[in-house]
């Protein structure tokens, strides 16, 4: 549904990536994989580079989610021309918090010297950024708050075993090593009238998981169950490949219907960022002939909750006026359809 009551604008976005870009040859070298494996990644995944919050040689974690999210938040606030004091509510989405408690959102708030305001953290996947924006928009729309800092990110260090024998891993675990990357992003939303900043015309998230098995499972272990045989991370990539394009198409159609917009009205499309190969397929299927595609996954890898923020950062840097942008994200653990629409009108 469109956020009603107050006009909400996206006034800044920022992102952070750890370490240098790692190409597939670097991964192949670390894991002792050969040219065939690199060709397979290039052909069926398509990711050129990704960033990892760990040292690929030693496996030592170098950055935390809170480190990256704090850097992204600072960049977003800078671009918005605001400071931490202006933030009166925070919402963060992640599937991979550094610790379950304290939550990452509160660690980030602490580092930014934000206190005395409400903060929320969502346990979320590839729809997490839209979910966080949806929550923030509802809070801003209520009139209780003026400026929201929305964050999202993931760090897969604890799942990334640099000593793994990729040749011996089952397929549902193998893909995780090449698909994902670490990163965080942030956006600042406000009800202030900021000319030139795109207006959030619609945001929607919807659970679509009834009777559907999870497409992705992330487990966490404690002292009593740490020796469980179940893999900490696995995915049903076949189900993802089949379902995500159809779910994405539904979201795009519904957003257009809600807003009364035509396909040709869309100048920018921010499609789901599973992998470059999947994103290309979905973008073709969504069929927005005049839209410029805004994607990041070929360079960042799939950064989960951070993806949309990378896309928003690129969009805000490029968005002309007038222009309309549509974003779609699908979460495939228990299947969440999500999307949002932004507009810059001719007068600003």
């Amino acid at each position: 549904m469109p956020p009603v009551g107050r006009t909400i604008r996206v006034v800044g976005a920022g992102t952070a990536l750890p370490g240098p870009p790692l190409d597939t040859a670097a991964l192949a070298g670390r894991f002792g994989m050969d040219g065939l494996w690199r060709q397979w990644v290039d052909t069926f995944i398509g990711t050129r580079t990704r960033h990892l919050a760990l040292d690929l040689e030693t496996g030592e974690q170098r950055q935390t989610l809170a480190d990256l999210a704090t850097a992204a938040a600072r960049a977003a606030l800078d671009r918005a021309g605001l400071s931490a004091e202006d933030v009166d509510v925070l919402v963060l989405g992640t599937a991979t918090p550094d610790t379950l408690m304290p939550t990452a959102v509160n660690v980030v708030a602490d580092r930014l010297r934000i206190d005395g305001v409400p903060s929320f953290q969502l346990q979320s996947g590839c729809s997490g950024a839209v979910q966080a924006i949806d929550v923030a928009a509802a809070l801003l729309g209520s009139g209780r708050y003026r400026t929201a800092l929305v964050l999202g990110g993931d760090v897969i260090a604890k799942h990334y075993d640099v000593t793994a024998d990729l040749g011996a891993l089952p397929p549902d675990e193998l893909v995780n090593y090449v698909l994902f990357g670490d990163g965080a992003g942030a956006a600042v939303l406000t009800t202030d009238d900021v000319p030139g900043a795109p207006v959030l015309r619609a945001v929607r998230t919807r659970l679509s998981g009834l009777d559907r098995e999870p497409g992705q499972t992330l487990r966490w272990y404690g002292l009593a169950d740490r020796h469980k045989a179940e893999p900490p991370a696995s995915e049903d990539y076949k189900a993802i490949e089949e379902l995500v394009p159809a779910l994405a198409e539904e979201v795009a159609e519904e957003l257009l219907d809600d807003l009364g917009w035509d396909r040709d009205d869309i100048s920018y499309l921010l499609p789901p960022q599973l992998s470059p190969v999947m994103t290309d397929k979905i973008t073709s299927r969504l069929a927005f002939p005049l839209a410029k595609e805004v994607s990041c996954v070929a360079d960042t890898g799939n950064t989960g909750n951070a993806l949309l923020f990378f896309q928003l950062e690129a969009l805000l840097a490029d968005m002309a006026a007038p222009a309309r942008a549509l974003a779609v994200a699908i979460e495939s653990s228990k299947w969440i359809q999500s999307g949002l629409a932004l507009e810059r009108s001719a007068d600003g």
Binding site: D34, F44, P171, L174
Partner: peptide, 15 residues
């Protein structure tokens, strides 16, 4: 059958 199965097969064939 899918692309991941293909990779698994080819890695096994190389070995």
């Amino acid at each position: 059958w899918d692309s991941v199965k293909l990779l698994t097969l080819l890695v096994a064939l190389e070995r």
